[in-house]
């Protein structure tokens, strides 16, 4: 327990972590680790999420590029999908951006309140997906550092 607290102190002390990660949510996943040194469970979850996010971002790019039928709906769903997992991990910034992707895909503004045009949505989507990717990269670095992954 105390080890877990120490560890959780660790991640929040990494620069930028405070912006990116909701400590409470992330810590309750860390709590699930059987071994505080190995962090096998949380690490595999987090790394699976990396893969998932990469795939999702690629799909987003493709959708935005092709602009095929229902691409906005697709983008919205992709945004929702990534929102769910990032929220579960407590990756707040990525989550917020994904939520915006979801909104824009529905032709709504940031908060999902007002209607926007398709052109606006396209523009906003382009920006926000880039932003989400950046945020994802940042938080990925933080997490990699936390898991002491030298490949970073």
């Amino acid at each position: 327990m105390s080890a877990s607290d120490d560890k959780s102190g660790d991640i929040m002390s990494i620069p930028g972590a405070e912006d990116q990660i909701d400590p409470a949510t992330f810590e309750q996943i860390l709590e699930m680790d059987d071994d505080d040194a190995e962090r096998e469970f949380s690490k595999s979850i987090v790394y699976d999420f990396f893969g998932q996010a990469d795939t999702t971002f690629k799909k987003m790019d493709k959708e935005l590029e092709k602009k095929e039928d229902k691409y906005l709906k697709e983008l919205s769903e992709l945004g929702h999908f990534l929102k769910g997992s990032s929220a579960t991990l407590g990756l707040t910034k990525v989550k917020d951006s994904c939520e915006k992707i979801q909104h824009y895909g529905q032709l709504k503004d940031d908060s999902g309140t007002k209607d926007i045009t398709e052109e606006q949505a396209q523009e906003k989507l382009g920006t926000i997906i880039k932003q989400a990717k950046t945020e994802f990269k940042e938080v990925k670095e933080i997490l990699k550092e936390f898991y002491k992954d030298d490949d970073a």
């Binding site: 327990m1 607290d5 959780s8 409470a24 810590e27 309750q28 996943i29 709590e31 699930m32 979850i45 699976d48 999420f49 998932q52 999908f81 769910g84 997992s85 579960t88 991990l89």
Partner: peptide, 30 residues
């Protein structure tokens, strides 16, 4: 409070059977 609390044993008379329906692998695993 949450930070400190371990996982309490809810004290079931038998393990409840739970069906978790979730498409997101991260959420599902957690």
């Amino acid at each position: 409070g949450r930070k400190k609390s371990a996982f309490p044993d809810p004290g079931w008379i038998r393990p409840p059977q739970i069906l978790l329906v979730e498409d997101d692998p991260t959420c599902r695993r957690i």
